[in-house]
């Protein structure tokens, strides 16, 4: 078995169709108003049950969660495999970090089970929506510290935001399973973010350059995971930034503010790109 596994080789059955961020962003349509200060759906785009397309949007997001969990499982499994146990320098990671990654693999496997059950409950077929492989790409780095930054801090941070949104959705809709399950998954994600923060600090304790590079990488991934502003403080973003749970996971206020700014920038950049594309197409 190879040491590193490319995203293009992720194994799926025939029901799943994969896409990537480049293709996703090449779609020149937009769910948000692209004219300056315009909004497409009244006061808010937040994913709440009172949206006319609430169930369909929730189904799509739940499927996104499920494939995201599959990739998170694959990413954690690969990190447990790809690096030899050592002192953390070079291509090695501490033995205890390998153990944590194995534990995370189990957690993510349960999350796949949970989200597959929830998808079924909501009437979604496996593979009904395309799978964006951007999450695994963040787990592909050859530097284990970048994986911690990309996966445990950025990806799992996004998961905190998404699960908080879905938990609220279930609570408002009175869905007895959705709220219950999201609450459990949220607890795991807070653990994973904390695990990533602790290891990142520990492994780079005597290597400030490596730490700086990891945090820089995390910002890049955070912006990518904003999905063009789909996640953010703005009520134009379907998914909010879960400040309280991020705080529990060890994010500082400054870090969350930075993410919020990046989300805002990503939203504006996306709107500008869509506006240009639609003008060019004459629609």
């Amino acid at each position: 078995m190879r040491q590193f596994f490319p995203v293009d080789d992720l194994a799926r059955d025939e029901r799943f169709v994969q896409t990537n961020m480049a293709k996703r962003m090449a779609d020149s349509r937009s769910a948000v108003g692209v004219k300056k200060s315009a909004k497409s759906r009244g006061a808010s785009n937040r994913l709440t049950p009172d949206r006319h397309d609430a169930s369909e949007a929730a189904r799509s997001l739940m499927h996104g969660i499920m494939v995201g969990e599959i990739q998170a499982l694959e990413g954690a499994g690969r990190t447990a495999h790809d690096f030899a146990a050592g002192d953390g320098s070079g291509d090695t990671i501490p033995f205890e970090l390998k153990l944590d990654m194995a534990r995370q693999a189990w957690d993510e496997a349960r999350h796949v089970e949970i989200s597959a059950k929830l998808s079924d409950w909501m009437g979604t077929e496996l593979g009904q929506f395309s799978e964006n492989t951007v999450l695994f790409e963040a787990a592909c780095s050859n530097d284990p510290v970048l994986r911690l930054a990309g996966v445990n801090r950025a990806l799992e941070g996004l998961a905190i935001d998404v699960f908080t949104q879905m938990k609220e959705f279930g609570q408002l809709a009175g869905d007895p399973f959705l709220e219950f399950c999201e609450d459990w998954m949220l607890a795991d994600e807070v653990t994973h973010v904390k695990m990533g923060s602790d290891w990142l600090r520990k492994v780079t304790e005597n290597d400030p350059d490596r730490r700086a590079k990891a945090l820089e990488f995390q910002q890049v991934v955070d912006k990518l995971f904003s999905f063009g502003g789909a996640r953010g403080d703005s009520d134009e973003s379907p998914i909010g930034l879960a400040r309280r749970f991020r705080e529990l996971a060890g994010f500082t206020d400054d870090e969350v503010d930075t993410i919020a700014e990046m989300d805002h920038d990503a939203l504006e950049e996306r709107k500008a790109a869509v506006r240009l594309a639609q003008e060019a197409a004459g629609v």
């Binding site: 693999a105 189990w106 597959a116 496996l126």
Partner: peptide
């Protein structure tokens, strides 16, 4: 087991390998 998770297309097997990995 962790490394193989990404290489198997069968979803139930993928999840079991992740669980047994731990």
């Amino acid at each position: 087991l962790g490394g193989w998770v990404a290489t198997v297309p069968e979803l139930d097997v993928k999840m079991r390998l992740g669980t047994h990995c731990y």
